[in-house]
Computed example of a mutant assay.
Amino acid sequence: MRDLLQKLVNTLKERNLTIATAESVTGGLVAKSITDVPGSSKVFLGGIIAYSPNAKVNILKIDETLIKKLGTVDPLIAEIMARNVKGIFGADVGVSTTGIAGPDSIEGKQVGLCYVGIVIKDENFVFENKFEGDRAIIREYITEFLINKLIEILQGG
């Protein structure tokens, strides 16, 4: 994954773009992975770990009634998380993760379900996936999935 992360940082640098992260299910793993790359400080502005519904409401400014209606694991919530973190940090790119790493299902949704939000300038993307494994594996898979999707979008794929 090191090469993949280097590719992401290089791509962001080449395009003169900055990035911010809003993470729930990954608990900061996306931000950690990006900042493990030397030179990432030129593109990474910051991240928010909004693990609880209250953090999503109070820090990421997601409407509480929307969370009560949809739950926290939802494609629209992922999109709003990415859009709002982008605005909070003044970044060109905002990314988000929300999902269920287990061991128990929540909100009637199964372990392994995740949504990844990516907002680049004014373009919004949301991806759904389902992963299997223990908590650590699911979180790693979600992180790698997000990084791959972001590179694909940035490179016009």
Results as ranks from 00 to 15, higher is better:
86 K>S: 13
92 D>H: 14
123 E>C: 09
126 V>Y: 00
34 I>Y: 05
102 G>I: 04
45 L>E: 13
92 D>G: 15
46 G>S: 09
125 F>A: 07
141 Y>T: 00
11 T>Y: 01
84 N>P: 06
123 E>L: 14
42 K>C: 01
48 I>N: 11
25 V>N: 03
136 A>H: 11
28 G>N: 10
90 G>P: 07
23 E>V: 05
105 S>R: 12
94 G>S: 08
99 G>F: 03
109 K>R: 06
128 E>F: 06
32 K>I: 07
76 L>Y: 12
145 F>V: 01
23 E>A: 10
108 G>L: 08
117 G>D: 05
85 V>K: 11
109 K>C: 08
36 D>E: 15
112 G>W: 00
50 A>D: 03
85 V>S: 07
63 D>W: 02
62 I>W: 03
64 E>R: 02
98 T>K: 09
86 K>C: 06
143 T>Q: 14
108 G>N: 12
130 K>E: 12
52 S>C: 04
88 I>D: 02
108 G>T: 12
127 F>L: 13
9 V>D: 04
102 G>K: 13
26 T>D: 04
42 K>V: 03
33 S>Y: 04
109 K>L: 06
54 N>E: 12
23 E>T: 11
131 F>C: 07
145 F>H: 12
35 T>S: 11
111 V>Q: 08
8 L>V: 14
132 E>C: 01
143 T>F: 04
7 K>G: 00
65 T>V: 03
15 R>G: 07
135 R>N: 05
119 V>F: 06
128 E>Q: 13
106 I>H: 10
71 G>Q: 07
8 L>K: 13
55 A>M: 11
43 V>E: 02
49 I>F: 00
26 T>S: 10
75 P>A: 06
39 G>P: 03
19 I>M: 09
19 I>G: 09
14 E>H: 02
16 N>R: 13
26 T>W: 13
78 A>V: 02
13 K>M: 08
31 A>N: 03
85 V>N: 09
37 V>G: 03
69 K>L: 10
118 I>E: 06
30 V>H: 07
151 I>A: 14
122 D>P: 07
138 I>G: 14
141 Y>I: 00
151 I>G: 14
56 K>G: 07
58 N>D: 13
40 S>T: 00
148 N>Y: 12
29 L>G: 04
123 E>D: 13
80 I>H: 06
